[in-house]
């Protein structure tokens, strides 16, 4: 919307389009759009790819065993196979940090790791952080200090912070800035993310 331009015209545009396109379209389309049942069998791809590997890993303490195509990334495995969607695809090129998860105690970018290469590992995602219905101190701190805006990077921010604080329980602010520098917050809520991580470091048992 242009500055100062009341958006009344938009409404009239949509109403005009409605009047113009309306009735005819309804008739024309309804017969062509008999719905398929949701359960209908999907056709399969032409050539099932034999290049697959059985992947086993514990994710948030739960063992999983899935056969995947070799080129499946850890992010695709977590989101697609395990339906854990807290890790996000922001760039798919280890350039943003939204896909951060913890593998064997270290934060990594799951978009650029192969699931087959992580086989046998212990993986933590954001879904595994709260224990016994209690939020992790980092989650608590991100709430109290509003360490986010849109939230798309937040899973990654919290996991990067967890991997760091687990090894460095009493960091300085500059330590935290460096540790968190691989996770872009495009809303740039950095001041509050920094406060959140510092607060969590004070709240977490050393």
């Amino acid at each position: 919307m242009r500055d100062d331009e009341p958006n009344v015209p938009e409404a009239s545009v949509s109403r005009r389009a409605f009047l113009k396109g309306g009735a005819a379209a309804t008739g024309a389309l309804s017969s062509a759009l008999l719905p398929e049942t949701a359960e209908a069998q999907l056709p399969v791809a032409t050539t099932p790819d034999a290049r697959r590997t059985m992947v086993e890993m514990r994710v948030n303490g739960i063992p999983y065993r899935h056969e995947v195509p070799n080129h499946t990334t850890l992010l695709e495995f977590i989101r697609g196979d395990l339906k854990l969607t807290g890790a996000k695809a922001g760039c798919d090129r280890l350039q943003c940090g939204a896909c951060t998860v913890i593998v064997n105690g270290r934060n990594i970018y799951s978009c650029t790791a192969l699931a087959v290469e992580v086989s046998g590992a212990e993986v933590t995602t954001i879904e595994g952080l709260a224990k016994d219905n209690a939020l992790h101190p980092l989650q608590q701190a991100f709430i109290e200090h509003s360490g986010y805006q849109c939230g798309f990077c937040t899973s990654g921010q919290i996991l990067a912070a967890k991997a760091f604080l687990d090894r460095h329980p009493t960091p300085s602010e500059d330590d935290v800035r460096l540790a968190m520098s691989g996770n872009i917050c495009r809303c740039s809520a950095y001041k509050r993310i920094l406060e959140s991580v510092m607060a969590a470091s004070r709240a977490m048992p050393v």
């Binding site: 270290r106 990594i108 970018y109 650029t112 990067a160 460096l178 540790a179 520098s181 691989g182």
Partner: peptide, 9 residues
């Protein structure tokens, strides 16, 4: 090099 996560990987 890179970031902590890149150095972990």
């Amino acid at each position: 090099v890179g970031t902590p996560a890149i150095r972990n990987m």
